[in-house]
């Protein structure tokens, strides 16, 4: 019997496909998320919108809170470690949660190195803006990816940009010959073996969700139609007027993403969406997606 193999790490992400992973900051929110049909919850102290509003250094959440959320639900629990902060990751692994998000939403702890995720038994999900960044994370041991988007804005534009970038690059790779693949791998700073694998299979080596700015059922379906395997919703649910109703609607729109009649039906009367931020109003230094190397 072999535990924590690559197949089981990647496999849990495969089981999450077609689902919605929701940010929660209390055990009560976690139960609402589970009741609404979330496939997993992300346990954290502050949702990205509040991290943005309050500023300061954003760190791993209090283990007590993470454990309380873990005890409140039966679905998988994820939590965030700072980029490069491998001790926060060790702590999260010791808590026995199910997945670690090495996340740009928290303040990076290392401006050069990401966590060497191969050293861990627990699987990691990492953010990416394009194929090269995604494959670099996979080379470091990430068993799942998510496009970064721009967390805490309620604005889907960056999530769309990143998903389009990733999938158009996957499509381009498929038409390249071997000579071109060598150069392409060099240019996007990704390992050649992974680049060749993507070219041969026509898909990413691991599951890829969308994240960062998804606030409505139509946003979730948009990302699914662009090709992602599922969605993370951060501030979008519990910063809205009726979290349970909106959570359920986003879950249903993610399943029925190709059925506009169902998306229309579930989008009715959801109450107020979270207040969004236009990206033009967001100075470069406040862009979380730029964190990560």
């Amino acid at each position: 019997m072999e535990k924590s193999t690559w197949t089981t790490k990647v496999g849990l992400a495969q089981m999450l496909k077609g689902g919605v992973i929701m940010d929660v900051v209390t055990p009560e929110q976690a139960r609402i998320a589970e009741e609404a049909g979330a496939v997993a919850v992300m346990a954290l102290e502050r949702v990205p919108a509040d991290i943005r509003a309050q500023g300061g250094v954003a760190r791993m959440s209090d283990p007590e809170l993470i454990v309380a959320i873990k005890e409140a639900v039966t679905i998988p629990v994820m939590a965030k470690a700072r980029i490069g902060h491998f001790v926060e990751a060790q702590v999260l692994e010791a808590l026995g949660i199910d997945y670690i998000d090495e996340s740009e939403v928290l303040t990076p702890a290392d401006e050069e190195h990401h966590i060497n995720k191969h050293r861990f038994n627990i699987p990691f999900v990492c953010g990416c803006r394009d194929l090269g960044e995604g494959l670099r994370r996979v080379a470091e041991g990430a068993a799942m990816l998510r496009t970064k988007g721009e967390a805490g804005t309620g604005n889907v534009v960056e999530a769309v940009r990143h998903a389009r970038a990733v999938y158009s690059e996957v499509r381009r790779l498929q038409s390249m010959n071997e000579d071109e693949l060598f150069v392409y791998a060099k240019n996007i700073q990704a390992p050649y073996e992974l680049v060749r694998q993507v070219a041969e299979t026509g898909r990413l080596p691991v599951v890829n969700f969308a994240a960062g700015g998804i606030a409505t059922p139509a946003d979730a379906a948009l990302m699914m139609q662009l090709g992602v395997d599922g969605v993370f919703v951060g501030s979008g649910i519990f910063k809205s007027g009726d979290p349970m109703k909106r959570a359920r609607a986003i879950v249903e729109a993610t399943t029925h993403y190709n059925d506009p009649k169902i998306i229309a039906e579930v989008s009715k009367g959801l109450g107020e969406a979270m207040v969004g931020i236009s990206l033009e109003q967001l100075p470069a230094e406040q862009r979380m997606a730029r964190r990560g190397w």
Binding site: K3, S4, T8, L12, D98, I122
Partner: peptide, 14 residues
């Protein structure tokens, strides 16, 4: 029984 072996760290191949 759901999730009977424990968290993801107890996932296995055999």
């Amino acid at each position: 029984r759901r999730n009977a072996y424990g968290s993801q760290l107890e996932s296995f191949e055999t």
